[in-house]
Deep mutational scan, measured.
Amino acid sequence: MFKRLMMVALLVIAPLSAATAADQTNPYKLMDEAAQKTFDRLKNEQPQIRANPDYLRTIVDQELLPYVQVKYAGALVLGQYYKSATPAQREAYFAAFREYLKQAYGQALAMYHGQTYQIAPEQPLGDKTIVPIRVTIIDPNGRPPVRLDFQWRKNSQTGNWQAYDMIAEGVSMITTKQNEWGTLLRTKGIDGLTAQLKSISQQKITLEEKK
């Protein structure tokens, strides 16, 4: 169930391209415009997507990853294993993690069937560096609404905000991946996880038929 919630949630996290980005210092504006741009692209490019579902990787690479804190999220997933990894191991892992996100997020976007969304009203940021933004996803086919909290983090150097995690039903996506990959990290280390991520990233994206 959580895996499905995570995939549905990713439908609204794909941010804007650099040329049309919203105010990078306001995570609420980023979330709002990102959702609108993403849904528009999914709707307008269905012919290309249906002809070649792996085209979704391109959308992810162009529109999402430049505005997601990939390395920060990847380091959180590694936890204690990050500090013990060599620079070469980290570089290989982050490259594999990025390719994994292209496949995983692309597969999530393949679930698009006309969903709509509501974003919580903007709250004062103050001096906060981590801000959760509640998004409610509404399914046109009558499924119950899904309420999610996207975690946005302020870059201490640039002042810009980027998304790095999502919490559904009190469970963090980062925590879920830590639990899912924990045994592999304990037995085969970061190299074993890197190899698995490379394998997963090679899987073809498949479209979910409308139910």
Results as ranks from 00 to 15, higher is better:
Gln115Gly: 04
Ala21Asp: 07
Val8Ala: 12
Gln89Trp: 06
Asn160Ser: 10
Ala75Ser: 08
Met1Asn: 00
Pro87Lys: 08
Tyr112Leu: 03
Asp127Gly: 14
Ala51Gly: 12
Ala95Met: 14
Thr176Lys: 01
Gly106Leu: 03
Thr25Phe: 08
Asn141Trp: 08
Leu42Val: 14
Asn44Pro: 06
Arg57Ala: 13
Leu184Pro: 07
Leu78Ile: 03
Lys37Phe: 11
Thr183Phe: 05
Asp139Pro: 13
Phe97Val: 07
Asn160Lys: 10
Lys29Val: 12
Gly114Trp: 06
Gln36Tyr: 15
Leu109Tyr: 15
Leu101Gly: 14
Arg153Lys: 00
Ala34Asp: 04
Asn155Phe: 01
Trp181Ser: 05
Ala96Glu: 13
Glu180Val: 00
Leu101Trp: 15
Lys154Ala: 02
Ala35Gln: 06
Tyr55Leu: 10
Lys198Pro: 15
Asp191Leu: 07
Ala73Ser: 08
Asn44Trp: 10
Lys154Trp: 05
Ser199Gln: 11
Arg143Trp: 03
Asn44Cys: 10
Ala19Ile: 02
Asn155Arg: 01
Asp165Asn: 03
Lys102Phe: 14
Pro145Asn: 04
His113Phe: 03
Pro124Gln: 11
Arg186Gln: 00
Ala75Arg: 01
Asp191Cys: 14
Phe97Ile: 08
Pro145Ile: 05
Tyr55Gln: 13
Leu10Glu: 00
Thr20Gly: 09
Tyr81Asn: 13
Glu45His: 06
Leu11Thr: 02
Thr25Gln: 06
Lys204Pro: 14
Ala96Met: 14
Ile59Cys: 09
Pro47Lys: 10
Phe97His: 14
Ala14Trp: 14
Leu207Pro: 13
Thr206Leu: 13
Gln157Asp: 02
Gly170Asp: 03
Asp61Thr: 07
Arg153Asn: 02
Asn155Pro: 01
Pro145Leu: 05
Lys177Leu: 06
Leu11Trp: 06
Ala85Val: 07
Lys154Tyr: 07
Leu64Ala: 01
Lys177Asn: 11
Thr187Asp: 02
Met6Thr: 04
Gln103Ser: 15
Asn160Arg: 12
Ala120Thr: 13
Val68Cys: 11
Val70Ile: 07
Ile174Met: 10
Trp152Ser: 02
Gly79Asn: 03
Ala95Ile: 10
Phe39Asp: 02
Ser199Met: 12
Gly192Leu: 09
Asn179Ala: 00
Gly192Ala: 00
Gly79Met: 01
Tyr28Cys: 06
Ile174Asn: 14
Met111Asn: 05
Val131Asp: 02
Gln48Asn: 13
Pro15Ser: 14
Ser84Lys: 11
Asp32Trp: 08
Ala163Cys: 02
Ala22Tyr: 14
Ala75His: 00
Arg143Glu: 09
Gln202Cys: 10
Arg57Met: 11
Ala35His: 03
Leu148Arg: 04
Asn160Glu: 09
Leu197Asp: 02
Val12Thr: 06
Pro66Tyr: 09
Arg90Ile: 04
Tyr72Gln: 00
Arg134Asn: 04
Thr38Asn: 11
Val60Ser: 13
Lys154Asn: 09
Ala195Gln: 13
Arg143Tyr: 03
Gly182Ser: 15
Tyr105Asn: 03
Ser199Arg: 11
Lys37Asn: 10
Tyr72Cys: 04
Glu99Ile: 10
Ile59Thr: 08
Pro140Gln: 15
Ala163Gln: 13
Leu5Asp: 01
Leu207Ala: 03
Thr187Pro: 11
Gln89Asp: 15
Ser156Trp: 13
Pro87Asn: 11
Leu64Phe: 15
Leu5Tyr: 05
Leu30Asn: 05
Met173Ala: 00
Gly170Leu: 01
Tyr93Gly: 02
Asp127Trp: 07
Arg98Ile: 05
Thr206Pro: 11
Phe150Ala: 00
Gln62Trp: 05
Arg186Val: 01
Glu45Thr: 11
Val146Ile: 01
Val135Trp: 09
Gln118Tyr: 13
Gln178Gly: 06
Thr183Ser: 11
Ser201Ala: 01
Asp127Thr: 11
Val60Gln: 05
Leu65Glu: 10
Lys204Ser: 11
Glu180Cys: 11
Asp191Ile: 06
Arg134Pro: 02
Ala108Met: 06
Thr38His: 03
Ser84Gln: 10
Ile130Thr: 02
Ala22Lys: 09
Leu11Ala: 03
Ala95Leu: 11
Leu193Val: 03
Thr158Asp: 07
Gln62Gly: 13
Gln162Leu: 06
Pro53Asn: 15
Thr176Met: 03
Gly74Asp: 03
Gln107Lys: 05
Leu185Pro: 13
Pro121Asn: 06
Ala110Thr: 15
Phe2Met: 15
Gln36Trp: 06
Thr116Asn: 14
Thr58Pro: 15
Asp40Gln: 10
Gln103Leu: 15
Gln151Tyr: 03
Leu125Trp: 14
Gln203Cys: 09
Ile205Ala: 02
Gly189Asp: 08
Gln36Leu: 12
Gln36Asp: 14
Glu63Gly: 04
Pro47His: 10
Ala95Arg: 08
Gly192Pro: 15
Asp40Ser: 14
Thr194Lys: 12
Tyr72His: 03
Glu45Pro: 04
Asp54Arg: 06
Gln24Val: 08
Glu209Gln: 13
Lys43Cys: 07
Pro47Gly: 10
Gln48Tyr: 08
Gln123Pro: 11
Lys154Pro: 08
Ala163Leu: 10
Gln103Ile: 15
Glu91Pro: 04
Leu101Met: 10
Ile200Gln: 14
Trp161Pro: 03
Ile200Phe: 14
Val146Glu: 13
Asp139His: 15
Thr86Tyr: 07
Met173Ser: 00
Ile49Arg: 06
Lys102Ile: 14
Phe97Trp: 09
Ala18Asn: 14
Arg143Asn: 05
Gly79His: 05
Lys210Leu: 09
Ala108Gly: 04
Asn26Pro: 06
Trp152His: 05
Asp54Gln: 12
Glu169Gln: 03
Arg186Asp: 00
Ala85Pro: 06
Ile190Pro: 06
Ala195Phe: 14
Val171Ala: 00
Arg41Ala: 07
Ala108Trp: 15
Lys210Tyr: 11
Phe97Tyr: 15
Val8Thr: 07
Arg134Val: 00
Gln118Trp: 14
Arg147Ala: 00
Arg147Gln: 02
Lys29His: 12
Gln115Cys: 08
Gln46Phe: 06
Ala195Pro: 11
Tyr105Met: 02
Tyr117Thr: 05
Gly106Pro: 07
Tyr117Leu: 04
Ser17Asn: 11
Gly182Asn: 12
Ala85Cys: 13
Glu208Met: 15
Lys37Thr: 08
Gly170His: 00
Lys188Asn: 10
Ser199Trp: 14
Pro145Gly: 08
Met6Asn: 00
Asp23Leu: 14
Lys3Val: 02
Leu78Val: 08
Lys154Ile: 11
Leu125Asp: 06
Gly159Glu: 14
Gln48Thr: 11
Tyr81Arg: 09
Gly192Phe: 14
Glu91Lys: 08
His113Pro: 09
Ile190Trp: 09
Met166Asn: 06
Gly79Glu: 01
Met173Lys: 11
Ala21Tyr: 12
Arg50Gln: 09
Leu30Ser: 07
Gln118Asp: 13
Val131Gly: 07
Ala92Tyr: 13
Ala35Tyr: 05
Ala163Arg: 11
Asn160Pro: 09
Lys43Tyr: 08
Met166Ser: 01
Ala95Ser: 13
Ala73Ile: 03
Gln62Tyr: 09
Pro145Glu: 05
Leu207Cys: 15
Gln69Ser: 14
Asp23Cys: 08
Tyr93Cys: 08
Lys128Trp: 06
Tyr164Ala: 07
Thr136Leu: 15
Asp149Lys: 03
Tyr117Ser: 15
Met7Ile: 14
Thr176Phe: 01
Ile130Gly: 03
Ile200Thr: 11
Pro144Tyr: 07
Thr194Cys: 11
Gly142His: 08
Ala21Ser: 12
Leu65Arg: 05
Arg186Glu: 01
Ser84Phe: 10
Leu207Asp: 15
Ala110Gln: 10
Pro87Phe: 11
Leu207Gln: 15
Gln151Thr: 07
Gln118Ala: 02
Val12Ile: 10
Leu16Gln: 06
Gln24Leu: 08
Tyr67Gly: 03
Leu184Ile: 09
Glu169Asp: 04
Ser84Met: 09
Asp191Lys: 10
Thr116Lys: 15
Leu185Met: 09
Pro87Arg: 07
Gly170Pro: 02
Ala163Trp: 15
Tyr67Cys: 04
Ala195Asp: 10
Leu125Tyr: 14
Leu148Asp: 01
Tyr112Asn: 06
Glu169Leu: 02
Glu91Phe: 08
Arg98Thr: 10
Ile59Tyr: 06
Gln178Pro: 11
Lys71Gly: 04
Val8Ile: 15
Tyr67Ile: 06
Glu91Ala: 14
Ala19Gln: 04
Trp152Ala: 04
Ile137Tyr: 13
His113Asn: 04
Asn179Met: 11
